[in-house]
């Protein structure tokens, strides 16, 4: 019995000791390993086993995947990395558009898995995006409902905001030039949405613009002070949207070979990444109608909505 105990103890300690090893799973470019400052740098080779001591040096555009204690660690950033720091925490990733595209996509898909992850994803995004895109805080009564900010393409844009439950109300919708606040377009509307064709407004793609909604008393036509207006929502007018998105997608693997469905959702993701959230919204909406049962579209769209402060709509969609 004692012999068995000794045998298993030795075996166990061997296993534990072996787990401290780091195995190089794969590498690209130039990656060196230096055991200590006095040792010479040696090229790291896939399959090589090293201790979690010393440092790794990566050249530009190099990368390495390490396996230690059943976990993989990937290094992308050029420079010197101390192994004892790398192993517990995965390093920051340096990514091009193609890489960012897939990373962004995977992130969204993982986070739209269930209500809880969606909530966390929303919090995480709002803490980054708060105030930047014109998302209204809870103290503002008027806030945009559609992602009509960032880059807007030519054509008819539907601007929507939260409706106010008062009978004697009318909305004043303005588009102004950001610099100098020159008024470009003004309209008064009863419903809480307006469709504007941007083409006749002769907007320049070198200027920034804002749209602002205020609630007016219908009789006096004065601004109702008790209703806070939406923060001005900044946008740019881009004439050639197709080209901008097509250029980005050139770097995304699988796009060229993809079927219409694949290309369509990839375009939607690229539109958002390239700063065209409204175009992306329209595309996701279309895909959702065409493929109501498609889980991928559902999750992508939900993640999109969360990123654009539409948590309730995203949750409702996932529950369908």
């Amino acid at each position: 019995m004692k012999w068995y105990f000794l045998f298993f103890s030795v075996l166990l300690s061997t296993v534990i000791f072996a787990q401290a090893d780091v195995v190089v799973i794969s590498s690209k470019g130039k990656v060196w390993y230096q055991k200590s400052n006095t040792d010479a740098k040696k090229t790291l080779i896939p399959g090589q086993k090293i201790k979690a001591l010393g440092a790794l040096s990566l050249d530009d555009n190099s990368q390495v995947t390490l396996l230690s204690s059943g976990k993989t660690y990937q290094l992308y950033e050029s420079g010197t990395h101390q192994l004892n720091k790398v192993i517990p925490a995965e390093s920051q990733k340096k990514m091009g558009f193609g890489s960012r595209f897939w990373s962004f996509l995977t992130d969204g898909l993982i986070n739209s898995d269930n209500k809880h992850t969606l909530d966390e994803y929303h919090k995480q995004h709002m803490s980054v995006a708060g105030g930047v895109k014109g998302f209204a805080g809870p103290d503002l009564a008027l806030s945009p409902l559609l992602p009509t900010y960032g880059k807007l393409g030519p054509g008819v844009i539907e601007f929507q905001w939260t409706p106010i439950e008062q009978k004697e109300i009318i909305y004043q919708f303005d588009i102004v030039k950001t610099s100098g606040k020159k008024l470009i377009y003004r309209a008064l509307y009863k419903p809480s949405l307006v469709k504007v064709d941007l083409r006749p407004l002769v907007l320049s793609d070198e200027e920034n613009y804002q749209w602002i909604v205020k609630a007016l008393d219908r009789k006096t036509m004065t601004v109702i002070d008790s209703i806070m207006p939406a923060a001005p929502v900044e946008f740019q007018y881009i004439l050639n949207t197709d080209m901008a998105i097509a250029e980005s997608l050139e770097y995304v693997e699988g796009y060229e070979e993809g079927d219409e469905y694949t290309r369509s959702w990839m375009e939607a993701v690229a539109m958002e990444q390239e700063g065209f959230p409204y175009l992306a919204y329209r595309r996701f909406l279309k895909l959702r109608i065409m493929h109501p049962e498609d889980l991928l579209i559902k999750k992508l769209f939900a993640a999109f909505l969360v990123r654009h402060n539409q948590l309730d709509a995203a949750q409702e969609m996932l529950e369908q």
Binding site: S26, K28, Q63, T65, Q74, Y76, K93, M95, G96, G98, S99, F101, W102, S103, L105, T106, L109, D113, V252, E253, G254, E257, G258, T262, L295
Partner: peptide, 18 residues
């Protein structure tokens, strides 16, 4: 690209978390 998830020559398997 190691970070990309291309669709080319990729398949669904039971290891798919989704």
């Amino acid at each position: 690209d190691d970070w990309s998830i291309p669709v080319k020559d990729r398949f669904f398997t039971p290891l798919n978390a989704d």
